[in-house]
């Protein structure tokens, strides 16, 4: 059973690495936000698997909950920032005003 958990953890880690491709080369910044949130979800499961492997699940379940909460809050904060800013182009500070002039 331990080997099964180890295999699943390694698979999830490889999937997280694949998501990292989208985080680094993503065309827009929103793609990066999505991929970090996906990596966070995977990490929650990996943390619980590590807890089972080390037989300290009672401690790791608290860490996993904190990680899930932080991941959710970080995603919400990043998306809220770009919603208020109204532009995903870096450096376009007065995007809205410029559009009004046109």
């Amino acid at each position: 059973m331990e080997q099964f958990f180890l295999a699943i953890s390694l698979t999830l880690g490889c999937l997280a690495l694949l998501c990292l491709y989208r985080a680094i080369f993503g065309p827009t910044v929103l793609d990066r936000i999505i991929s970090t949130s996906v990596i966070g979800t995977k990490t929650t499961v990996i943390l619980l698997l590590i807890g089972l492997l080390y037989q300290r699940i009672d401690m790791f379940v608290d860490i996993a909950l904190a990680y899930a909460l932080l991941n959710f809050i970080a995603t919400m904060a990043a998306s809220k920032f770009f919603r208020v800013r109204g532009s995903i182009v870096p450096g376009a500070k007065h995007f809205k005003e410029r559009e009004d002039i046109k």
Binding site: T28, T41, A68, K80, F82, S87, I88
Partner: peptide, 22 residues
């Protein structure tokens, strides 16, 4: 918690995309 939070985060990012006119 994930069952409730994940779709909410999805809405938030999609709305950010709409507001940024992607």
């Amino acid at each position: 918690f994930m069952f409730v939070a994940n779709p909410t985060a999805t809405h938030a990012i999609t709305k950010a995309g709409l507001d940024c006119k992607v």
